[in-house]
Each structure stands twice: as structure tokens, then as C-alpha cells.
Design a protein around this nucleic acid. Sequence first.
RNA 1: GCGCCCGUAGCUCAGGGGAUAGAGCAAGAGACUUCUAAUCUCGAGGCCGCAGGUUCGAAUCCUGCCGGGCGCACCA
Length: 536
Amino acid sequence: MLCHDSRVIDPVADLHAALTSAVVGLTGGDVPQIGLERPGNPEHGDYATSVAMRLAPLLDKPPREIAQELATIVEGFPAIASVEVAGPGFLNLRLSDDWYRGALTAMLTAGSDFGRHAPVAGVETLVEFVSANPTGDLTIGSARNAAYGDCVSRLLDFAGQTVTREYYFNDAGNQINLFGQSVRARRLGEEIPEGGYPGAEIVEVANALDLPDDAPLDDWTTQGVAVMIERIRSGLERMRVTFDLWTSEQTLHSSGAVTAAIDRARSEGHVFEQDDATWLRTTTFGDDKDRVLLKADGETTYFAADLAYIDLKFKRGATRAIYVLGADHHGYIQRLKAGAVCLGLDAEAVEVLIYQLVTVSGERMGKRRGNVIILDELTEAIGVDAARYFLVERSHDQMLDIDLDLAVETSSKNPVFYVQYAHARCQSILRKAAEEGLEVAGVGPTHVPEGPERTLVRRLAEWPDIAATAADLRAPHRIVSWVHELAADFHAFHHDLHVLHEDAGTRAFRLSTVRATGEALTRGLGLIGVNAPDRM
RNA sequence: GCGCCCGUAGCUCAGGGGAUAGAGCAAGAGACUUCUAAUCUCGAGGCCGCAGGUUCGAAUCCUGCCGGGCGCACCA
């Protein structure tokens, strides 16, 4: 596990801390990285550490000898039932009943906050995502952006950061002009212009507008954008993705922010004139080529607005600006970072997350390919829960193929049902316990035998580390994997053990485990925006 | 040509320095008098793309190659 902040309630971190104190006892201060992990092989204990091997060069002693000395110290800890030196110098730890009961009590006490980090002062993270131009409905690619960006936001929030979610939309320039012309053409029954937008949604937008046929193009454009933005917003909301801020590119121009940003970069000495255009010397800071800010015709480029927008993000108080972009935009990373430095900002505070492209049943989607799959179609076809689950099931670094035939299938092949069903089962047991008056308060003093109960509690105790690591790595798919493993452990537990046992002590521990599992599934699924139903 | 991502079981993938590399699906064999069998159990399946290097230890880190995807605008 990684060593995370100890302000989180975390039974495993407590173990880590105990081990650290033992190491300090040996070295007198120096502490190497202490790896503490759950071995795959049960013979290697509940947890194992390789710290003795890392300590060997430091103390100039054989690893097994160091492991033996550590074992003697650690053996006395109440959380530890037994210690064993194994292999080249591993320390295999077996946890005591005490630890299992304590861990379960701790997670039930923390409830939905188990694993949540206390607010970190001075960290204001701005996550800008989706940001698709309002010239059409959101495609499957934007759906991945929405799901991924939203999950990253939830993860960072859970990790104690103050998160603001922002949608930036382009409502100026050529593409938007074409959009406005397309809307008007659709309404008047004329041919859409060359390079215009042929999508069916343009017709719907056109028909929603209350404009006379001879209204100026600007009106068609402005009102068309407003309607399109609302379509996008409500679609995202149905997908449980909401934003704190909607920022228009137009306002950056009209407020003078774009001009101000160019002036600022100029005063920092990074602007130059060439071929009648105004350029930003981004190559000074690692970009492939310099970028134009003002074209020869005097128009600003999209990048000029980007520059103003970066400036705005930090002026509003963000300490970190995260961008979520598709792989086809990876070339923007250096450009954005270099742009920030040209404004006197810190490149490290600009973080660009790239997700790989999405295909549907093996085919790449494109607005000009005529085979577009829209976000709304996806959620209607397979439901919001399944859509969100599948969209973040794989690493964002990995290409994603959504097999619509498979995704539509509502069988046990579908992992989201498997996980949700585990939660429904938990609730079912808890309902029955309540109905029959079999509820018991607390974890109880019972001995916890080796078996599914211990396996399940160990899994549950991983949560704070899983959540913190997923946030650090911006990797919501780790939450998905974990939740699936938890469901599997629970199904096995449920199959092997009768929870509403006649012995009150046994019942107390098992009921507590079921409660903790139900909460963990709700919490974990919540971080990926998937519901945990009480009945199925 | 340059840059980013990927290459692990038949398929889709997990695995961010540790012991015998994991999961789902597919294919095979079993388990329902039960708090939901929408479940569980067991077996089979692998030059971790190739070659070097770092390390006590590499699927993991470094370098080079091979293969696939995506980019490289005074477009947005």
C-alpha cells in the first residue's frame, strides 16, 4: 500500500504505523519505504512486509536476521496474532481477533465517511471536462469524458480537496457561425451550408426557437447555442454529471480577458510578431512549435482564448487546473503548460488527463461518419448505471470498446448487476433481521474464525488505501475493480455462512460485516456515480 | 520523421519494485429443503511483444527495437 495521510480512519494504516515504530526502534530514526501488502497466497499471512530486505543495506545485516528482530518487537502488538519470517526476509503477519473486531467497529463508526479524507486546506482543484462545443449532441467520446471527469472529481473530493467542476464552451468563431447557419437553414427548409451540421438534433433546435424567418444570423446562433447547451446540460444531469460553472468563450473576448492575457504574456517577454501575425513563443517551454495568438487577419485564435482561460482559472483561486481531454487532443498538453508558463504561472499546476478513444462494437465514431452514437442513446439503451460503470471500468489510458449487444444484455455477464445484486442481498438480510427482531448492536466479543468472514473484513479494510490511490492516480477504474472483488467476497461469504445465526455473538459479528459491506458498496459505487439498489 | 497511449490466458482487461502473475467472459466438471442459485465451488488455460540494463528481487523502473491506435493548423 501507499502510505497516505493518517488523518483518515484506517485500520491498515494503524498497522503500518505500528510497524514503523518497530523499525524506528531498530534503526534509531531512519525509515525506508515500508511496503505492506496482502499476499495472494494465504500461507503468507494476512499482511506481509518486505521492509527487512530494504533495511539490510542500511543496517549491513542479513535480511532474515533483521526480520527476526522485527518479529520479536511486533509480536507484542495487540493487533498481531502471530508473526513469521519467511523466504528471503519477508515478515508475514497474522492479525488478531482484536484487529478484526476493531477494524469492523471503526468502519461502522465512520459509516459513509470511512476512507474520506478531512478537507485539505489551501487545495482548490478545478476540473474542466466535457467542454464539447454546443454544435450538436454529445457523442460516445464525450460520454467517456463526462464519466471519467466526473469520477475524478468525486475521487478528489473524497480525498479532501475542494473541487470545482467546469464546462467551457466555444460560442464564437467559424464553427459556431456554421452552426447558426445550419439552424436557420433547417428552420427555413434550405440547404445547410458547406461544412455545416447535418444532425437531426439541429432540426429540433431550430424548431424550438421562437424567431421570425428574417431574424439576423446572430439571433439564430445565440439562441441556437442556448438551446443546445440546455440539451447538453440536461443530458449530463440525467447521467448524474453536474457542473458548478459554465464558462463561455465569448465572455472571455467581450470582457477583455483575451486581450489582457496577450498583454500579460507580452510583458513577460514571450510574444513576437511574424508574417503579420502575433505569436506566443511556447517553444521556450517545451512546446513543439510556437503558437499564433492573433492571425494575420486580426482575428484571435482559439488558443488565445485558451490562454485567457488558463489565466482566469488561477485568478479565481484554483491551485490546480485539471483538463480532461481525448487522446486526439494530446498535443495540447505541452501547449497548455507552456502557455501557462508564458503567463508567469506554474506548469506543474496544469494537469492534463488524456483518455483514449472510444469505439462502439469495433467502429470509430465521428460526426462526419454518420455512425454517431449519442450519450442519450447509450443511457437509454443500457441505463445510466451500466453506462457509467462500463465507461470507467477500464483505465483511461486504455482504448475502450463498447459492445452494444453485450451491454444491452441484462444477465449475470454484466458486472454492474453482479455488484448491485450484492448490495441488494445485504439489504435483504438486514431487512429480515429487523423484521424478525434479530438485530444485535455492535460487533460483539466473538472469536473470528479463519474463513469468509476474515476475508471479507480484510477486503473492507482495504478501502481507504484503494480510494486514496485511485484519487492519486486519477484512476476510477480501481474503484470498479475493488467493488467487484468486494461483491465476489460477499457472495462467497453469503453462500458459506448463515448470517442470522442462533448464537447472538456470531450473529452480531456477521450482521456487522453485512452492514459494513452494504455501506462499502454504496460508498464505492457512489464514487463512480452508480446507484446501489435495495432490492432487485 | 517527431510526440502521446497500448502490447499480460482463446477474448476483454487488472496488476505503479516483492514470494507460485490475477479477474471477468468463453470452453469443462459440480452444488438449489437456504437470509434472493441474478449465487457459489473446482479443474484447465501464460517465452507478461523482443533484446539489453538497473536491483538482493522487474510484468512493473531505464534504453533500444518490433507491432497497433491517436496526433503533429494563422481549424475549432
